[in-house]
Design a protein around this nucleic acid. Structure first.
Lengths: 157, 157
DNA sequence: TCTCAATTTAGAATGATTCTAAAATAATGG
DNA sequence: CCATTATTTTAGAATCATTCTAAATTGAGA
């Protein structure tokens, strides 16, 4: 599915809830679509948007990301480094990724399976809890960390 | 296992890594032990410690919690409300709790099972990733939310 | 065009966390 | 016991992400 079509869909979601797709919002969404693989912080988004639209204010980026998170168009997440990160939730990977975080250097790898459907059913049955979203992160060490600068194996070599 | 014995054990962990159990650190650890069930923020810990030892500084609380997290005596976690929270990791519930977070009001419930052992074995085999810790939070709605002020069901009644 | 509501802007304010420099404390060696 | 040195703590300043504020801008409809 191409970017234009995605933007159209997001526009509809916004309209449905009584919001407009302003120029600023559209550019922010476009940046998110063009960087679907990353986990951008608000600051990251701000920088990328500024390249296309230098007049944008940081507050607008924050407000827009917050709005998109509320409408569940993006997922807001936290990896413990004090910065919120945002991810588009296309139907492809909606509700479907977990993270491996390197304990030494913080490198992040994403896993595209959803391993939790069964657990979520159990939660609903046993705990009366209806899951909207989840967050599953593993902290540990890669046998070979994707970050070249990671010192995990330097000391013990 | 009683508090005194736990403190003794933590003292040994500190010593092993070349740190001392100072008065301040001991009181912080004691507060954590006495509130094992909660997820205290640094500010919470600070308040509780101040009751017993009013001279303590906030920076010391932060530094000590950071240190304890590094030594894996406490787990540092994030529920997306902008505050880091800290939990003692006694062997009873080490590596073994997940969270249910109310989407409406943020109320938190803890689940004491560990549902992920199997997945962690799979990660090591398939991804070459050795898990040290994990974080599993579900965001959603309780059929009946433990927080009386939660408005989940107010609107739709 | 005029009006109203929604949105954006710059910059100030907030709140959590970290840093800094000086003081206190503890451990070591003479 | 005293001097030396390393560790830790303290108060308060600094930083960084995020949110708020008040004024300006925009756009849709009358």
């Amino acid at each position: 599915m191409n970017i234009q079509a995605e933007i159209e869909k997001i526009k509809h979601s916004l309209m449905e809830s009584g919001y407009k797709l302003t120029t600023q919002r559209e550019i922010i969404v476009r940046v998110l679509l063009e960087n679907e693989e990353d986990h951008l912080s608000a600051e990251d988004v701000y920088m990328l948007v500024k390249e296309k639209f230098p007049e944008i204010g940081l507050a607008t980026v924050y407000r827009t990301l917050e709005l998109l998170a509320e409408l569940q168009i993006v997922a807001k997440m936290n990896f413990g480094d004090g910065v919120a990160r945002f991810d588009l939730r296309g139907q492809d990977h909606e509700h479907m990724h977990h993270h491996l975080i390197c304990h030494t250097c913080g490198a992040l790898e994403e896993i595209k399976d959803d391993w939790l459907l069964e657990l979520e059913q159990r939660l609903e049955a046993e705990y009366g809890f209806k899951v909207i979203d989840h967050r599953l992160d593993f902290i540990g060490n890669f046998r070979s960390c994707p970050n070249d600068n990671c010192k995990t194996h330097k000391g013990s070599a």
